[in-house]
Structures are given as structure tokens and as C-alpha cells.
Design a protein around this nucleic acid. Structure first.
Lengths: 96, 96
DNA sequence: TCAATCACTTGCCGATACGGAAAGTCAAGA
DNA sequence: TCTTGACTTTCCGTATCGGCAAGTGATTGA
């Protein structure tokens, strides 16, 4: 019953995005990009992968100054991330 | 001081190999292959990556029947794995 | 109003990585 | 010695990754 690792979430950058979003609830694009330390395009593409898996919701509230992109995990994103973390914890359970 | 994830170890199959070897100390090639559920060639290639990083030691004791390959983490492999697990634990620390 | 700017997004690379099938290697067994 | 078992390597098609450059759309400044 070893839950498998989720490929969408396991990729280092996406794992960090999910872990970050779990802890802050919602974050701006630029904050996520700086946290990862990669370019805009790389950030955008990883977010897109998470969005297409329905793990992340993207909001671009317009009308209040510059359009900033806000990111947030969806309920299923939280579930998927929790399941992945469980799989990881199980895997590394016996480690020193 | 967020320790970075180790790319060599992070790949799902290699993470499983390392986690397995940490727990059993040493294992036969075929056991590792069956644990992963992949082909011989895939197993061989992942082990080679770990070996070239000096994380895994390969022994092929000859003279006692069929040549079986035994795998074992090296001291530096244990250290690298431990560091990776620490990085993971840190990353997923705030998860529900 | 309309060009410039900001905040991304997409297209286009080249470089790797991954996995399986098939062929190759080599010690042991018949 | 011919075969077999146990991997290893090669071949090959696909997928991913990252950065740069060009493109898009809302907003702002002249």
C-alpha cells in the first residue's frame, strides 16, 4: 500500500511551490519566483503544470493598479500535496 | 540555510533505492529491481548513476555460484541521503 | 489618447533525463 | 564447449528542464 510519489508534485521546483503555498495560503507570482530563484518563464511554466493538474488556482485581480498574479492551492491540490508528503514520509521513515 | 535537494538522490527511483538500502544495509540487484518494478536496464542505469556519485558500492562476489550483484550505500552515500532527507523534512515540515 | 511599461506567457531552442527493447558481456553450469 | 543466468550497454523515441526572446494585455504617464 505504498502510496506512489506524485510526479507533478515531486519535481523540486513544484515541490517547493506547493510547500510554500501550503504554509502561506496565497502568494504573489514574484514572491514565488524569488523563493525559487529562477526566471519568470520557468516559474510560469511550473505554475501552469500545477494549474493544469487542478492543484493551483490563479487569480489576476484587475482594476486595482498593476495586474498581479496570486497563487493558491486548490482543495484537490492540498489533498494531492498531503498525499505526496505522506508517501515521502513513509519512504524516509526509517532514515537516521 | 535551506539545504538544497540533491538531484541525484531526488529522482523517484533513486530515492526509493536509497531509502531501501538504508533500511536493509545491502541488497541484491534483483531485489532492488523488483522493489522498483522496472526493467533490468532501468535498474542498472539508476544504480550506475548512484555509483558514479560514489553513493553506492557494487560488489559482484565471484566463485560462489552464479554471480550476483550486491548493492550497498557508501559512507558518503549515507551522508548525502541523510542530508537529502533533512532537506525534505525541512521542506515538508509545515504540512498538515 | 496613445505610446511606454509592468507583469507575466508562450515559442523556441539546446541539453538532459527517462524508460524499454534488444544486443552484448562474462562467469558458472551442464 | 555450448548454454544460461545476470546483468550492462546501446539504440531510440519521448519528455522535461531551464533560459532567452518575443508576444500579450492591463495600466500608467505625457
Amino acid at each position: 500500500m505504498t502510496a506512489a510519489l506524485n510526479e507533478v508534485i515531486h519535481a523540486p521546483n513544484r515541490l517547493q511551490i506547493c510547500a510554500f503555498l501550503i504554509s502561506v495560503d496565497r502568494a504573489e507570482f514574484s514572491v514565488v519566483r524569488d523563493m525559487l530563484g529562477v526566471t519568470d518563464s520557468v516559474t510560469s511554466k511550473h505554475i501552469k503544470v500545477l494549474e493544469q493538474a487542478s492543484y493551483v488556482q490563479i487569480a489576476k485581480p484587475t482594476g486595482q493598479g498593476r495586474v498581479k498574479t496570486w497563487l493558491e492551492l486548490t482543495p484537490s491540490g492540498r489533498l494531492a500535496y498531503a498525499a505526496h508528503v505522506e508517501a515521502l514520509r513513509h519512504l524516509i521513515a526509517e532514515s537516521p
